[in-house]
Each structure stands twice: as C-alpha cells, then as structure tokens.
C-alpha cells in the first residue's frame, strides 16, 4: 500500500528528504518493500515500546492507591494460597521432583505469561485506539509495550517463586539461571497466537470473548497445576515441552524432549503471525477509526 525511501535532493542546498508514497493495491505486490518496512517499524518500536511501557506503569501507579506495589500483590496472594493448599494436603501428586507449591506456582507464572502475551496485541491496541486511528505509528510499539509488561509481571512472579524455593529449601543450581530464557518461547507462542487472532478480535468483540473461553478451558489440558505426560493426543501439545522445560530448569531437572524444535516452531509462527498482522493493519485502522 505504501513505502518510504530515501531520494537525493536536486538542488545543492536541498537536504535529503524522505519520500513517502501511498498507493492503492495489495501490499504484497512489492514483497521487498513490505519486509523492509516491517523491519524499520520494528526497529523504531523497540524504544518507543519501552517509552509506552514506562508511561503505562506511570499511569497505573498514579491511578492506584498502592502504586507499584500492585506488581507484587498478585504474586504474594498466589504464594499464600498455594502454601495453604499444600499444607492441607488437598491434592495428591505423583513424584515430580519438586514441591507441589513450586510446581504449581511456576506453572501459573508461565501460564500467566502465555495469557498476557496472547492478549497483548488486542488489549494494547484497543487501549491506544485513539492514537492508532489518528497518528501513523508502528503498532509493534504498542504491542511490545504489552509484552514488556508481561515480562515484568513474570519477572516479579519469578522473584517471588525464588523466595518460595529458598523458603522450602529447594536446591537451586546453575540451570536455574537458564530458566527465564527457557520461558521466552512460551511468550513467543502466546504473542504469535495473539497476533494471529488480533485481526478478528480487534474487529469483532465475539473474537475476544471466544478466545477467553477457549483459554479458560484449555488450562485443564495443560501442565499448569498438575503434570501431564506427552502421550496420545497430548504428544502434539506444544505447551508440554514449553511449560515443563523452564520449570524443570529451575530446580535442576532436565530439558524436555522436543523443546528446541517446539521453540523454533513458536519463533517461526511468530514471524508469520507478525507479517499477517501487518497485512491486516491498514484495514484494522480504517475500521477502528
């Protein structure tokens, strides 16, 4: 639909001016231009997204009596609840190589990361609706701001989780250091699915409701609160290696089978989803405004 390029000025003192062209027609007619533009927007979005993320934190703390404390409150609540459940012996767990509280807490942290990245595109773009329909800004910045926020929340929960591990005398080791990095593919998968559905969820409210319903049901088929073995249909569940690996690394257990392949798949899906979103973007803006 459009592209930007650098063209030299004609006169001596005329500076190099950016030339912008908007044209009717499908964007994929010029694939190279499309990719170049995507890269430029992403580059700009890295820092702009961070500014938006900071601004978001700033406004959240201004509107809340407890300010930045809200980052920790959900984690503290979760620790208390899980400790209570474990103390009362409500669940009977097989041997999983770590205390149940740690297992569940780590599972919920990862699941929350997945949900927050999954919802980041729709939530952020709806929140910045006034901006995206009136200014030509890279949407990646808004989406990244949401991703940064999801990572911050995950980091806070991880901190609480580590305190819990020390409290329960769970032996930690060098593998613990790799656990946060092993959680990145979960976020990539969440963001990829979120971006794939964003054109639908941004246009229709049904989309967002449906997605919420599905994720609420899906949590029972995932190794979040209890372990699930990758057999039968579950062999194709990408979240089993993606959720199990960072959790296992935390307490010095091994990397799950197929983790690397699934992580690569998640990254590839993210790339595809991003390009699909970019194709849909001008039409989303047109119908949102």
């Amino acid at each position: 639909m459009h592209y930007e390029d650098q063209t030299g000025g004609k006169g001596n003192d005329e500076v190099m001016k950016k030339q912008i062209i908007y044209e009717a027609g499908p964007q994929l007619r010029n694939g190279r231009r499309f990719v170049h533009e995507a890269a430029t927007d992403l580059h700009q979005s890295l820092s702009l997204g961070f500014t938006l993320f900071q601004a978001g934190l700033q406004t959240q703390s201004r509107r809340a009596l407890l300010g930045h404390l809200w980052l920790f409150i959900p984690a503290i609540m979760a620790v208390t609840a899980i400790s209570y459940v474990q103390a009362r012996g409500i669940f009977h767990f097989p041997d999983i190589g770590m205390p149940v509280a740690v297992f569940v807490f780590a599972g919920t942290t990862l699941w929350q990361l997945l949900l927050e990245t999954l919802n980041a595109p729709t939530r952020q773009l709806i929140a910045h609706r006034g901006t995206v329909t009136r200014l030509r800004v890279p949407h990646e910045a808004m989406i990244l701001a949401g991703v940064y926020e999801a990572f911050l929340n995950a980091a806070v929960r991880l901190g609480s989780l580590l305190i819990l591990c020390i409290f329960l005398r769970v032996p930690l080791g060098t593998t613990t250091l790799f656990a946060p990095f092993a959680a990145v593919p979960v976020a990539m998968l969440g963001l990829a699915v979120g971006l794939l559905f964003a054109p639908i969820t941004l246009l229709y409210e049904d989309g967002a409701r449906g997605l919420l319903l599905v994720t609420n049901l899906l949590v029972f088929a995932m190794p979040v609160a209890y372990p699930i073995t990758a057999s039968g249909v579950q062999r194709f569940n990408p979240l089993i290696p993606l959720l199990d690996t960072p959790r296992n690394l935390l307490v010095r257990l091994s990397v799950s089978n197929g983790f690397a392949a699934t992580a690569a798949l998640a990254a590839a899906l993210l790339l595809v989803a991003w390009f699909i979103y970019r194709l849909a973007r001008p039409h989303i803006v047109a119908r949102l405004g």
Partner: peptide, 11 residues
C-alpha cells in the same frame, strides 16, 4: 497514511 487508498496514489 491512516486510511488505505482504494484507487490512486499519493506522493
């Protein structure tokens, strides 16, 4: 650059 054109061109 907010609305995609259906016809024509802008430079």
């Amino acid at each position: 650059g907010l609305l995609p054109l259906d016809r024509g061109r802008v430079v």
